[in-house]
Amino acid sequence: MASAEPRRSRRPSPEEGEGTARAKPARKTSARRRVSGAAAAMRSAVEQVSELLGRVPESVSSVRPIEDGWEAQVEVLELERIPDTTSILASYKVTVDAEGELISYERTRRYSRGMIDRPT
């Protein structure tokens, strides 16, 4: 059974011109949206920190929700050495907002890869 109403998802042809009613897109590419969950927030943070530092983070050692986004500790290789256990890493505190945009980052610690944290 065919519907009398035209389908809204059809794209108008170039001949139909601008005056033709069009269906609104599901979302604009420039619209900001909330990232869904810690994993998505951290993928976004790692990508942005990598771009700023020019180094790909090795891991995310912690992540926690905050009032308006996420906060994480991201581990970055800063100086590669031989043997690998003497390479220098840094831990960065990274904050992203609810949309996954980087708000701040701060280096909180530098250490050699072979160093083990000892309880105090």
Rank of each mutant, 00 (worst) to 15 (best):
V46L: 05
R32D: 15
M115V: 13
A72R: 00
S61W: 00
E47I: 03
R32S: 14
D68V: 02
R118M: 09
P25H: 15
S36F: 11
P12G: 09
D68F: 04
R22Q: 14
V94P: 02
V74D: 00
S112M: 06
P6Q: 11
A72T: 00
V56H: 12
Y111K: 04
L102T: 00
L89R: 11
S91Q: 04
E106I: 00
R7D: 10
A98N: 10
E47G: 06
R113S: 08
R118K: 15
M1F: 14
S62N: 09
M115H: 11
E106Q: 10
E58N: 06
R64P: 01
T86M: 15
R11D: 15
R118Y: 13
E5N: 13
S50M: 08
G114T: 04
V60P: 03
R11N: 11
T29L: 14
A90V: 08
R34P: 07
V63T: 03
A41G: 08
A45Y: 02
P57M: 04
A98G: 08
S3G: 12
S62F: 03
R27L: 08
S59A: 14
A39F: 10
T108L: 04
S112L: 10
R27K: 15
D68Q: 11
E101R: 11
S9V: 07
A23Q: 12
S59E: 10
T85R: 07
K28H: 14
R27E: 11
E99D: 15
K93D: 07
S61A: 02
S61T: 03
M115R: 11
S104Q: 07
M42N: 06
P57A: 03
D117F: 09
T20K: 15
R32V: 06
A2K: 14
S44T: 04
R8E: 12
